[in-house]
Structures are given as structure tokens and as C-alpha cells.
Nucleic acid binder design. Structure first.
Lengths: 216, 216
DNA sequence: TCCAAGACCTACTCACGAGTAGGCTACGGG
DNA sequence: CCCGTAGCCTACTCGTGAGTAGGTCTTGGA
């Protein structure tokens, strides 16, 4: 035993850099998602990607760079999705509603991406989080802008809307994590729970009132 | 230069195990808080604690055990504080209010503890988080119970109150993190923002209504 | 046909950090 | 005064994983 023990079945062909980079990023997201930044090893990533380690260094740079690249790619997709949702001009509550739905839809469809974004990136205080925090800020700004627009220039203090945007985003993140463990709940339902919490408020909900989308 | 370069000033005396353990835990919280679980080295912790590494192993066990011990200690304090706040029997909104205030007071006073609890522990998917997740669950349960009690047995689905409790806790965590970067805002103010968000809801706030504590 | 460039690999080096072996010293009880 | 025990340390081992040196093979153009 051992003659030719390492033969790769007709070596998967040489591929253009572009393709390899995507493969590597995909692999990296999976591995980072599974183990977290520190515990993920470049060896495992190269393994999953089906290339050798030096390729990663040649194409995407060091571990930090690679991680940042993952964050950038995934976060852009998420923020874009939300922004598109909110964009449709309508009442504040409908804007928030479509934004929330876009957010939960993304999380539902891209669980691994979400794990990387939320669980891993927020924790590592290092230079990575720059990337992520920038995106998170964009999300917060979206919400903040919505709040400011809504509060018809009553003398609402700037900081309070910002803080509420932060709280709302945090609520979304937390609920999204919970949802990972309760996949049976439909996306629309989760979204409506959060919508009711932040739009109606517990005070109203306790009294039996609730918010419903004014669809068609 | 270098004669005696390592003289410790009259060696700080031998101390009973009890005291050393507290010193080590204190140091561990600081270091974990500063660098995160993985990047924190046992060497640095022993250094900060003013003892040698083997002492840590002798008293608190391996790195994981040490981390778990930190979590356990800090989380207990936090949950206790919140539970005490909520305990005072009163209306649901006042219960929530006192709970929130207790939470933010803890965060304000124990910033490093909070960092360890939130930033570090939630990220590491390992066996550590067991400890932390248990505590977080207790917090969520507190809120959930409050919600269930409030919703006067109208047919509110269990899952929705649980989910809302999760969202609320997430909002609190997120806002607490934001607060770390805006220390000028008084504790009571932050608490009232969150209170308004979740009790009144954006719908009411947009209309200019707001919640105020019914104090004295 | 030859060469340059780019895809791709094996097989290392090297630092760092967890965990340990094997001590030494102070103190309290017999 | 002697010894057991508990506080405490220096100085290691050893695995793991980031990052690299230095090549090979293939393809397309001159």
C-alpha cells in the first residue's frame, strides 16, 4: 500500500485567479463561521477550499486580510438588502417593516454569513472589526435616519434617536440569533414580533393592541 | 546595572489561598476583558495577578476553567442585581424600569466585567459559553415572566413573549455597548431611552408621547 | 520552438503560549 | 527542634498554527 497514495483524480484543472478567490472566500466564511476567527486555521480553510495554503496568501493575503475580505463581502450584501428594503418610499412604519423583513430574510438564507458577521466579528476587538463596525454603523444610520425623519422635527434629542437605533439593531441581532435555534418559526412571524415590540411597545401590547402590515 | 535587578520589594508575603484566588480572578477579568479569551495569555494573567503561572493552575485549573470561573462570578452579580431590581412588587412597567436601571447601573460600574460577559463569552462557541448562556437565559426568563404576567392571560403565544424577551435583552446589550463609548450620558437617561422604546414603542414616540417614571 | 508568466504545490521555519516537573521556603504543631 | 504541609517559583516541554522558501508544471504568445 502507498504506491501513488496521493494521486488527486486528474487534478481539478488550473483555474483563473478570480474563481479561486471566490472559492477561498466561500471556504473561509464556512470555517470562520464554524470555529470563530482564532480557532479557524488557515490549513483548514485551504483544505476546504481545495487549494494549498500559499495560494491563499498569494491571493487574499494574511489571515486578518482574509477575514476582513469575508466581512466586507457578506456585510455589503446584508446592508444592501436592508437598504433596498427601506428605500421604497412609504410611511415610516412600512419602511421599518420592509427593512426588518429584508434583514430576517437575509439571515434565514445566509446563516453562515450571519454567524461570521455577528458572532465572530463583533467579538474580536482587533482591526477586523473596523470593517464590520463600519457596516453596522451604516445599518444604525439607516434606522436613525428613519427615526429622525419620522419624529417630525419635534425637539427630539439627536442622541436619543441614535441610541434607539442602536437598541433596535441590537434587538434584531439578538432575535436573529434566537431564530437560528428556532428555525420552525417563519420569517414573517419573527419580523412581526420585533415590529410589534418596537413600534407598538409593550405598553400597547399588554393592552391587547398590535401592529399589522397594511398589505394590499 | 543588573545586580539584583529582580528583587521583589520584600516579597509581598505569603497569602492564604482565598485571597490569591480573588486576586487571580480579578486579574483574569481584566485581561480577558482587554484581549478576549484566545488572545489573553495565562502568562499575562499571572503577571497582572502578581503570582506565577503554576499558582493559577493549582488554584483555578486550566484556562477554560478560569474563564468559566470569571463568567460565573460576574454573571451572578449581574443577574442578582437585576432580579433584586425587578423583585419589588409593582406594576409591570415599574418592574421593567427598575430592572433596566439595575442593569445599566451594573454596566456603568463594572465596565470590565460587562466586556467579559458580553463581548467575549458570547462569541466563543466553546464549552465556556455554557456558563454564560445559562445566565443570559435567566435574564431572558425574568423578562419573559414579566411579559407573561403582564399580558393578562390573553391568548398570547408563548413563543412570542420569549422572542420579545430575547429582543429586549439584545437591545439592552447593544445599548450598553454603545454607552461604553458615550460615558457622558447619565445612566438614568440611557435607561429611559430603552424604556421608552420598548414600552411606548416608536409609534407612540413619533406622535410625541413618552413614558415617565411615576416617582414619588 | 522557446520563454515568460502565472497557477500551484511540498515541506519546511519559527514564535508563541498552554501546561508541567521539580524544586525551594516559611510556618505551625508535635 | 524537626517535619509536614501549603504557598510559591524557575525553567523547562511540546503542540499547534501562521507564514515562507523554493520549487514544478502548464499555457499562450513571439
Amino acid at each position: 500500500m502507498s504506491v501513488d497514495e496521493h494521486r488527486r483524480p486528474t487534478r481539478v484543472k488550473r483555474l483563473p485567479r478570480e474563481v479561486r478567490e471566490r472559492q477561498i472566500l466561500d471556504a473561509a466564511v464556512r470555517v470562520f463561521s464554524a470555529h470563530g476567527y482564532h480557532s479557524a486555521s488557515m490549513d483548514e480553510i485551504s483544505d476546504v477550499a481545495g487549494v494549498s495554503k500559499p495560494m491563499i496568501y498569494a491571493y487574499l493575503g494574511h489571515k486578518e486580510d482574509l477575514f476582513a475580505a469575508c466581512i466586507r463581502r457578506e456585510a455589503s450584501l446584508l446592508v444592501e438588502a436592508i437598504a433596498d428594503g427601506v428605500a421604497a418610499d412609504a410611511n415610516p412604519d412600512m419602511q421599518l417593516w420592509t427593512g426588518l423583513r429584508a434583514f430576517f430574510r437575509f439571515v434565514g438564507e445566509q446563516r453562515e454569513s450571519w454567524r461570521v458577521l455577528h458572532r465572530q466579528a463583533t467579538s474580536q476587538g482587533g482591526p477586523f472589526s473596523e470593517e464590520l463596525m463600519g457596516m453596522r454603523s451604516r445599518a444604525i444610520s439607516l434606522v436613525d435616519a428613519l427615526l429622525v425623519r419620522s419624529a417630525t422635527s419635534r425637539g427630539v434629542p439627536t442622541k436619543s434617536t441614535e441610541a434607539m437605533a442602536v437598541a433596535l439593531v441590537g434587538a434584531g441581532e439578538s432575535l436573529a440569533d434566537w431564530w437560528l435555534d428556532h428555525p420552525d418559526v417563519p420569517e414573517k412571524t419573527v419580523a412581526s414580533w420585533l415590529m410589534n415590540l418596537v413600534w407598538m411597545g409593550l405598553g400597547d401590547l399588554v393592552d391587547g393592541a398590535s401592529w399589522l402590515p397594511a398589505d394590499h
